[in-house]
Simulated scan of single mutants.
Amino acid sequence: MHLTAQVRYDADVRRVGALLADEAFVQAKVRATGALSHQVDVVGRPEEAFTVTTRRQMPTDAVPAQFRALLGGGLEVRQVEAWEAPEPDGRHGTVVVEITGVPVRLSGTTRLLANEDGSTTQLYDGELRATIPLFGGAVEDATAGAIRSAIDAEERTAATWLAEQQG
């Protein structure tokens, strides 16, 4: 399943890059997704290439009942965003999301693009695959919904974070 999404930030690309590499912000956005517990690792600096890895334990109540048996006692989500060094036209990276113990994986790209009004748009473009016989499509649909919810939570968290930094 092809998955696209976008996030708008009221800040320039440089500031958004610094935000995405800020461990405190990353922890806040992970908490905003409803994670029961989490771990965040940021390697590198925002003015260079950097990688953000998150692991979060998520509740299974949002998962359709027929798929909860596949998950056992919990849902552990691992996400890695690897950002290249800034370029004149923005910033490029790759993103991978995996659910531990379940054959579900999102692989794709992410970009930061400068808008004329000084804001930044982050674009996600990837392929979501669930290699589960008979139920793969339904699991992909459920996972896509969860990923979109996480992206929405990130956008809300970033808007609050950026507004607090300006004020």
Results as ranks from 00 to 15, higher is better:
Gly34Thr: 08
Ala144His: 08
Val63Asn: 00
Gln27Phe: 12
Phe67Gly: 06
Gly17Arg: 11
Ala32Tyr: 06
Trp83Leu: 07
Asp141Glu: 00
Val40Cys: 01
Ala69Thr: 09
Ala114Gly: 00
Gly126Leu: 13
Asp61Gln: 14
Ala62Lys: 03
Ala150Tyr: 07
Thr110Ser: 08
Asp41Asn: 12
Asp12Phe: 02
Thr100Gly: 01
Ala49Phe: 11
Glu84Met: 06
Asn115Glu: 14
Ala24Met: 08
Pro86Leu: 12
Gln6Phe: 11
Arg148Asn: 04
Phe50Met: 15
Gly145Pro: 00
Arg148Phe: 00
Gly118Val: 10
Ala69Asn: 08
Arg56Asn: 07
Pro103Ala: 04
Arg31Ile: 02
Val40Met: 10
Leu71Gln: 10
Ile99Val: 13
Gly118Met: 13
Arg129Tyr: 12
Asp61Asn: 15
Ala21Asn: 07
Ala130Arg: 09
Leu123Gln: 11
Ala49Trp: 09
Gly101Trp: 12
Arg91Met: 06
Val26Gln: 03
Ala24Phe: 02
Leu75Arg: 12
Tyr9Asn: 13
Val139Gln: 00
Ala11His: 05
Ala150Ile: 04
Val63Ile: 04
Thr33Val: 00
Val104Asp: 05
Glu98Trp: 05
Leu20Ile: 10
Thr51Ile: 01
Ala24Cys: 03
Glu47Phe: 09
Leu75Trp: 05
Arg55Leu: 15
Leu134Arg: 12
Ala49Gly: 10
His92Phe: 08
Tyr9Phe: 13
Ala24Leu: 05
Asp22Trp: 04
Ala65Cys: 03
Thr131Asp: 12
Gly17Trp: 02
Thr60Lys: 15
Asp12Trp: 02
His38Pro: 00
Gly44Pro: 15
Leu106Met: 15
Glu87Phe: 09
Arg68Tyr: 08
Glu47Trp: 06
Leu112Gln: 01
Phe50Val: 13
Ala142Met: 07
Glu84Pro: 02
Val139Ala: 04
His38Gln: 15
Ala146Val: 11
Phe135Arg: 07
Thr51Phe: 15
Phe67Met: 01
Asp125Pro: 06
Val26Arg: 06
Val43Pro: 00
Val16Ile: 09
Tyr124Met: 14
Pro103Cys: 14
Arg68Lys: 01
Pro59Asn: 09
Leu123Glu: 07
Gly108His: 02
Gly108Phe: 04
Val40Pro: 00
Ala142Tyr: 15
Gly73Cys: 14
Val80Gln: 10
Ile147Asn: 01
Leu128Thr: 01
Leu123Tyr: 06
Arg31Lys: 14
Ser37Met: 08
Val104Lys: 12
Thr143Val: 12
Val52Gly: 12
Leu20Glu: 09
Ser149Gln: 03
Thr131Arg: 07
Gly118Ala: 14
Leu71Asp: 03
Ala21Met: 09
Ala82Ser: 15
Arg105Met: 08
Asp10Gly: 10
Ala28Gln: 04
Gly101Pro: 00
Thr94Asp: 09
Glu140Lys: 03
Glu140Asp: 10
Val43Gln: 02
Leu106Ile: 12
Pro88Cys: 07
Met58Ala: 15
Glu87Tyr: 11
Val139His: 02
Arg111Gln: 02
Glu140Val: 11
